[in-house]
Amino acid sequence: MSFQMPTYQAPDFSKPAFTGAPCAKSAPAPRDGVAPENYHATSIYPEYFKLGGTWMLAGESRMDCVAVLEPGGGIATKEFRNLRGGDEVILGRTEDGSEGIYVHYDGFSKAGASDGSFAFRTGRSRETAFSKDYDSLYELLKYEREHGFIAWVLGPACSFDADARAAMSGLIENGFANVVMAGNALATHDLEAALLRTALGQDVYTQQPMPNGHYNHIDVINKVRGCGSIPRFIETYGVKDGIVNSCVRNEVPLVLAGSIRDDGPLPEVIGNVYDAQDRMRSYIRQATTVICLATQLHTIATGNMTPSFRVIDGQVRPVFLYCVDISEFVTNKLRDRGSLAVTSIVTNVQDFLVHLWRGTAK
């Protein structure tokens, strides 16, 4: 089985509904951070705007942002907090072309898709067979390693097991990661495992609690802070394995977003939530495949900023978004928040990583 990129089917703008539609209206933002009344909120899907009589595709999108006309004639997608007074914001609450705005929901629809008739087990749950998803993901990652940009969003559970750590490290070492995004906990417990073979004080192989093990993660944070940076800690203490070490050695960016519950935190953790969002967004703008593992809040945050498509060299291609969690609540929550293009896999992430590593190594 080899990966086949889905073909994008653009709207037929020669249809009367489009040729007879008015041009999109706009109005200036009244001040920084505030959109004008009746602003158009963007989605994860390709969006077209009729400007000067021509339907134009916004080059990128993001859920719950606004479309802004750029001085050079393009269309930018901006978060409300990044609006500047005077920005020309597109107006309109319809998406069918009648106000010069068209949201294209089915550009990547597959032939033979469901006709809507009743069928059992059409959802994604712990009873779903995911074998086909694994096979597809193996081939997708091999394709993306050569042609795309793979972003990982990792929860701390990825560092609690020796085999999972080794599998994720192997994926990074072999070019299957272009950026890793996480929080303080993932990096802390991965470095704890590298130095002390524990995560939250439990042996990462046997899962046995170690004497006074509850000190281990904060001892590691303290040592890293004493060194001044994660790379300096790795060098000083001779760290040889783990997810963070693989990122540092292979120059894969590691974006650590802070949380109100963080202890320490590690020096590289970004404490300002909007700075962290901007850093994550800078990589999501490049991403063609996003894989989120066992982290509800980081997954939802990433899903909110991930579009369903990317325009590369003038061609529209899909962005593949995966959510992997042992909790159906988490996978369903992401869909409920609007990330309808997500592929959900309900499983233990340690097993997922080991299977993925073995599958991509074939």
Rank of each mutant, 00 (worst) to 15 (best):
Ala21Ser: 09
Asp32Leu: 04
Ser259His: 01
Asn332Leu: 12
Gly73Cys: 08
Asn38Gly: 10
Tyr8Gln: 07
Val66Arg: 10
Arg197Ala: 15
Phe176Ser: 06
Leu321Tyr: 05
Gly52Asp: 10
Gly228Ser: 04
Gly201Ser: 03
Ala166Cys: 12
His104Lys: 13
Pro28Trp: 00
Met305Trp: 02
Ala111Tyr: 00
Leu200Cys: 10
Ser117Trp: 03
Leu171Cys: 10
Asn332His: 14
Pro46Leu: 05
Glu88Val: 01
Phe160Cys: 13
Thr306Glu: 03
Gly148Tyr: 00
Ala41Gly: 13
Leu51Lys: 11
Gly271His: 06
Thr331Phe: 00
Trp152Phe: 08
Ala21Leu: 01
Pro211Ile: 03
Phe108Asn: 05
Val204Lys: 03
Arg225Gln: 12
Glu79Phe: 04
Gln296Leu: 15
Lys25Phe: 00
Tyr237Phe: 10
Tyr274Thr: 10
Leu266Arg: 03
Gly201His: 03
Met181Ile: 14
Val179Phe: 04
Asn250Phe: 11
Asp219Ser: 14
Val68Ser: 00
Leu186Thr: 13
Ala129Asp: 15
Lys223Glu: 07
Thr299Val: 06
Gly213Pro: 00
Tyr143Gly: 02
Arg232Ile: 15
Arg62Lys: 15
Asp12Arg: 06
Gly228Cys: 05
Ala164Val: 09
Leu91His: 00
Pro209Arg: 13
Pro30Glu: 04
Glu99Phe: 08
Ala24Val: 08
Ser229Asn: 12
Cys158Asp: 10
Phe49Cys: 12
Ala276Cys: 09
Thr54Leu: 13
Arg281Thr: 11
Asp12Pro: 04
Asp263Ile: 07
Gly213Val: 02
Phe3Met: 10
Phe120Gly: 09
Ile218Val: 08
Ala164Glu: 03
Arg249Gln: 13
Ala157Ile: 10
Ala361Asn: 14
Ala166Arg: 13
Gln296Asn: 11
Ser14Asp: 12
His355Val: 15
Val342Lys: 02
Leu200Lys: 09
Lys50Gln: 11
Asn178Trp: 01
Val255His: 02
Trp55Asp: 01
Ala129Thr: 08
Asp336His: 07
Phe160Asp: 02
Ala166Val: 12
Gly59Asp: 12
Gln4Thr: 11
Met210Ile: 07
Pro36Met: 06
Ser308Met: 10
Ile345Ala: 03
Ser308Leu: 08
Tyr48Thr: 12
Val316Thr: 10
Ser229Thr: 06
Ala164Phe: 06
Ile44Leu: 14
Ala199Tyr: 12
Phe329Lys: 13
Gly183Pro: 00
Asp241Gly: 12
Asp135Gly: 14
Val68Lys: 01
Arg165His: 12
Met280Gly: 11
Asp336Ser: 11
Pro22Thr: 05
Phe233Ile: 02
Asn250Val: 11
Asp262Pro: 11
Phe130Gly: 07
Glu192Thr: 11
Arg358Pro: 05
Leu196Thr: 10
Ala58Lys: 07
Arg84Trp: 01
Tyr205Gly: 08
Ser282Arg: 05
Pro209Phe: 09
Ala35Arg: 03
Cys323Lys: 04
Val220Ile: 12
Tyr105Glu: 13
